[in-house]
Design a protein around this nucleic acid. Sequence first.
RNA 1: CGGGGCGUAGCGCAGCUUGGUAGCGCGCCUGCUUUGGGAGCAGGAUGUCGCAGGUUCAAAUCCUGCCGCCCCGACCA
Length: 569
Amino acid sequence: MRYSQMFLPTLKEIPSDAEVISHQLMLRAGMIRKLTSGVYSYLPMGYRVIRKVEQIIREEMNRAGAQEIFMPTVQPAELWKESGRWNFYGKELLRFRDRKDSECCLGPTHEEVVTDIVRNGVKSYRQLPQNLYQIQTKFRDEIRPRFGLMRCREFSMKDAYSFDIDTVNADLSYQKMFAAYNRIFERCGLKFRPVEADTGSIGGSYSHEFLVIADSGEDGMAYCEGCGYAANLEKAEIARPEEQAVDVSSFLTREEIHTPEVRTIEEVCAFLQVRPENVIKTLVFSADGVPVAVLVRGDEEVNEIKVKNYLGCDILEMAMDDMIQAAAGSPRGFVGPIGIKCRTLADYSLMNLTNMVVGANREDYHLKNVNFERDFKVAAFADLRVVRESDPCPRCAGGIHFARGVEVGHVFKLGTKYSKAMKAIYLDKNGKEQYMVMGCYGIGVGRTVAACVEQYHDDNGIIWPLAIAPFQVIITPVNMNDQDLAAAAENLYADLSSQGVEVILDDRDERAGVKFKDADLIGIPLRVTIGPKNLAAGNVEIKNRKSGEINILSVEEVKKFILGAIRQL
RNA sequence: CGGGGCGUAGCGCAGCUUGGUAGCGCGCCUGCUUUGGGAGCAGGAUGUCGCAGGUUCAAAUCCUGCCGCCCCGACCA
């Protein structure tokens, strides 16, 4: 493609509403333009990258035995009512009515539709397993879209759905997809890590997220170099500590202390001259409307997802004041475990601790020298807190590290959640009805591209991995008015193009500096610079965008070099 | 939904306090010069000042309502 004819509106200045680097660079490099909040157009340069990622996904999904389909964006409410998600899925589900006043929605995901297709098309165990996927536009009416393509409302997503006869086979399907995902992100040239994750509202029993390592990522992960354990921060487990023999003789006499207006852990510590590690934080939650007290050490944070999963409840939220008052008999800030009228759980961090400070369940009072068993009991000790980087690995007890990442893929074992709700049934060998066991597997295409920019850029712009670069090579004659340079550039351009290389000829009548800046900004991996000095000796210069390495080669050698690099893909 | 900020040329911004009929830089167009890291000079085009009301002789500026966008939080595959 000739640069002079391309629609490639680059920007010198950073658009003021772009916060993260990928958003800024994708706007500046003329890849995307915003239409409205969280909704973007892909311009030629951006769409080429999107299509490359899609193609890699397509090839790997096909290789893994999945079959491509294409499902509708507009979906009828009745299917969603059948699965139970019409009421469950919040405002993220964009609902509307058609001219006949029928309720519809824009698909944020396609479990309902695909399950409907498969239950109608599959009747026998002989027809299983099946794995169907599509690459399609999703719409999720996010509360707060942000960061360009990182969190959009409308976005391209690859979603695959597997159907198996039982959980053993479903596990195999899951593993196949897991392996395919690893290959996909490897081929895209990304540094990423699969991590154990919570299943959230999609449901199911088990899942992994694929996080692309980037400091600007919205997700945190904890991982262990030793054994390979890796989990989303909200999921990362903490091992149960060793229980130590209790030395009852060390228990001090419990005291009630007047602590007026002293509510927070900081205030308690300052007032009583103790450290947060000596205070028990008591939080009251409403679990499906029932109060539950959760105890954690004063310097730790409760992980609500762990609490929710432990309790197995649908809705967990911080209790309102009236519920706290009813359970504890005191207002927020003075709640403690002794005599509280609700189920009480304690985090592992409290094991083996003695002579603690707690709320007295009496306004303006705290208790000192409180001990387990002697003063109160809890229903259970459990892993309920947010992990810290200083915690040991839950598997091998080695050290763990934290990193941030962008969630680009998520694989779930769904079990029979949807097949039961929607009666996706087959007949087994014995002619007996069975529910299909499902899995679902998503990749955010645009987000993968954005994550790639987050990972690969420098002060001058984007640095595309060769595999997903919009073009592989840019030829930059330093002066188009020099007939020799122009001719050499044209020849090389024609030659490489005819051999299938994706190449831009920067035939603009611009100064070399402008061309170099644009080439760097749009991130083309290989740049061939044709200048008078080198050309006089029959040579051109090839520069690697990523390494900055420059080689002066003959025209023939440069062709070989480029074809060699591309063949390695 | 709570808090904060913004809306003036394609992009980045000034002007608003104290009302007088819109400006700067970049980009764009023309010409000349220049030509290996965002050139110089000269000339030029481009605006429903987010929208709608109101006040006023006069509104980008003051008042009211609305819309949109961004950030933080809440929330969320």
